[in-house]
Design a protein around this nucleic acid. Structure first.
Lengths: 211, 211
DNA sequence: TGGAAATGCGAGTATGTTGTTCATATTTTC
DNA sequence: GAAAATATGAACAACATACTCGCATTTCCA
């Protein structure tokens, strides 16, 4: 696992100086992820987040100037986490099946904490106004990791550009995980096995007829 | 294509008798799908739907007793549509690749009109209170169609139950389509080709090592 | 053709929801 | 022990929006 980084969240109203307040901020962001995942963007109210964090609403506004800056903090934390998972599974030279297994295990683990956070962040929540750069950057890095893996494990064929393949692969995996999360089936080992098989089958390119 | 059925929407306040009012109701439901897809559940307001339909808010409430009954009408229409698509692609005896191509074409067509409606219906919108049966029934039929296809095209193997395979397959396809829809890439032929290949590869079961 | 039934209208209301502030209280630091 | 940091939560202002109701217009049909 990668080392835990402790960058300050962006757009904070005030920097927490003492250990107590640092824990408070962390609790708020964590609660934000929890509420967002459980109640969706519609249920993501500042009062609810504060209550979930076991903190007064006033405390929340001491550190976050408004609702959107809190959303951005949650988004950033989650994206950093997911990226580190993919990074870890891609490093080193391993056989295809091993790679697929570690990727699936990692993605499932990353989604086990807040099962639908990822989708809510991508679909429901408003895109981060100010720094669209950050959002785009995540998408780019995310795809790049998949593209690298595709390039490494899939023999080049004519008429199939890397980017599309990477997109299809990543969105298929996300679809399966998202769907499983909604049914509380993320832990089922049978599902993991099948997902690994799907990845291997696609990348090793079987089932093709002609040429 | 299947025959157009004209069942009355459930939970209607008043039955439209003349042709004019039947068109009005249809416009309202269509507008509902449009708003839901474009603005999400959060943006799905009765006033907005009425305005989009080019109809007064009073007219809307003449036929739908409340907001949720309108949602149910939209949901039902969409589910009926998707089911007919899958049904059509599954009938007859065709080779795997042909089946996959028609399925992909149909699913993409079904999502082209209201790209994110399906996800919004499943994820954001509240599950239909009264008739949970209808919702469950859709899920069951939906999965059954996939399970049938899986049974037909995938040689039986030990340790892989049909239901899980069907779930993995359907959610992978939905994931790809949903993701493409968000990027306005549904029409890209390269994407369709890759999705077909993913399905074929998985069902023909290549890339497996041992046993 | 005329009256009854069906359909359509939209300003207005009533009822909430919620993001945010601020004066005050408690805790930590040095 | 005082100053700085941190926490509190009642209160509010602003907004959103589901839904009603009295009336206008159109269609039907005898």
């Amino acid at each position: 696992m990668s080392t835990r980084i402790a960058k300050p969240y962006p757009r904070m109203r005030k920097q927490p100086r003492q250990a107590r307040s640092r824990a408070t901020v962390e609790a708020i962001v964590e609660a934000g992820a929890h509420v967002l995942s459980g109640l969706g963007w519609a249920g993501f109210t500042t009062n609810k987040v504060a209550e979930t964090a076991g903190v007064s609403i006033g405390t929340l506004y001491q550190y976050f100037p408004d609702k959107l800056s809190l959303l951005e903090a949650v988004r950033r934390r989650h994206f950093d986490h997911v990226l580190s998972v993919i990074r870890d599974s891609a490093e080193g030279q391993k056989p295809l099946r091993k790679f697929a297994q570690e990727l699936v295990r990692g993605m499932i683990a990353a989604h086990s904490i807040h099962p639908t956070l990822h989708q809510v962040l991508l679909d429901e929540a408003p895109g981060d106004r100010g720094s669209r750069a950050a959002h785009a950057s995540f998408q780019t890095q995310y795809l790049n990791h998949y593209a690298t893996a595709v390039a490494a494990y899939r023999k080049p064929r004519k008429g199939a550009d890397m980017e599309t393949v990477a997109r299809v692969l990543s969105s298929a995996i996300e679809g399966v995980i998202h769907n499983a999360a909604r049914r509380n089936m993320l832990a089922a080992p049978e599902l993991q096995k099948q997902l690994v098989e799907l990845i291997c089958a696609y990348l090793s390119g079987a089932g093709r007829i002609g040429r």
